[in-house]
Nucleic acid binder design. Structure first.
Lengths: 185, 185
DNA sequence: CAAAGTTGTTATCCACTGATAACTAAGTAC
DNA sequence: GTACTTAGTTATCAGTGGATAACAACTTTG
């Protein structure tokens, strides 16, 4: 069996992608570095060697998720620089639902001082970005992020998104009112 | 040293209270049954004996948090059966911030099938309760829960609540717009 | 008070997990 | 082709955490 060698950069990126998926289920403490390693097809010690520690792997993962959200919002703002324009992008974000969920796991893990500081910084940057891109007022931005958080949590609960469970009455009731268009086919 | 013996019921309640505090930091996977045990002043194996497993302890904890939220909302609705009335109760909920945060950790752990089903049921019940108590429309209820989720996550991130970190500019900006009154002294 | 039930403890186990060390093999430069 | 660097492995370890079992102490009942 011939091994495929990648550059450290490529492997790094591949591992972060795997980590997004793994940490999205499981969260920080509930996911092993071995699970991430297997997803990417490398050995567990190599993951540690590339990232130094599990914590730094998680930080890189959360940072990447925030970057992707930024990218998607920037692209959306290029077409329609309003909150509604960015809101429509939640369709794309829910398609890559793990991005949102891994961010949520970051927020939830903020009790750890090292993680907390990084995660608050990410969130603050996203908040400021939205206000810059759209010129929204603080109130409008707050409502936007509140809706986003609800969507994120519903995604984590598998009420919304690719692997949603069979809908209950209250779910259809709640989801029917979601702004920015319906999400599920 | 004389040991204080409680009835199993009393110890059960005390352990759930300790578990709320412990799981609020740390989450499901990030908290050990020994941490909960020490908080309550008993041995770790006894916690397992009383609850059967860590998972059942967590489920009992989430269930208790949901019950407390229900109680607080019921009391609030008795005075003012509107969304604004319930919203004002977020002040009390933030005072017992761990309640909200432990619920959040429940939502985040919903990828585990056993936990997920229970957690979705809790959330659905709370949603229906709010609509019953207030007669709010689906849209109004959705906005209410979206705001609540934002408050919860900000609590978990220590942007809001008892142990909030030193505020950043974006935080004061965002918090200044929170509905239902200012939260911090 | 003896027997039975309740409330706990200590001792112990085993699986798991992050991390380290030492080694291997594939490119790359000269 | 030989020396060097880069990408990866296997072997291993030390600590931890949930769970089980056996025992101890207190309370109640007859």
């Amino acid at each position: 069996m011939t091994r495929i060698r990648l550059t450290a950069q490529e492997r790094h990126a591949q591992l972060v992608a795997a980590a997004v998926s793994a940490f999205a289920k499981g969260g920080y403490a509930g996911t092993t570095t071995d699970q991430v390693a297997r997803l990417a097809g490398v050995s567990q010690p190599y993951v540690i060697r590339l990232f130094g520690s599990k914590q730094e792997l998680f930080l890189a993962t959360v940072g990447h998720a925030a970057d992707r959200v930024r990218q998607i919002w920037l692209a959306a703002a290029a077409k329609n620089p309003t909150l509604h324009g960015l809101g429509m992008a939640y369709k794309e974000l829910l398609a890559e639902r793990d991005l949102l969920v891994v961010l949520l796991h970051g927020y939830a893990a903020a009790a750890d001082p090292a993680l907390g500081e990084a995660v608050r910084r990410c969130y603050g940057e996203l908040y400021l970005l939205v206000r810059e891109l759209t010129g929204a007022s603080a109130e409008e931005a707050r409502d936007f992020f509140a809706s986003g958080m609800l969507i994120t949590v519903l995604g984590a609960m598998q009420v919304l998104g690719p692997d949603a469970v069979a809908p209950q009455p209250w779910m259809t009731d709640l989801l029917g009112t979601l702004p920015y268009g319906k999400q599920n086919p």
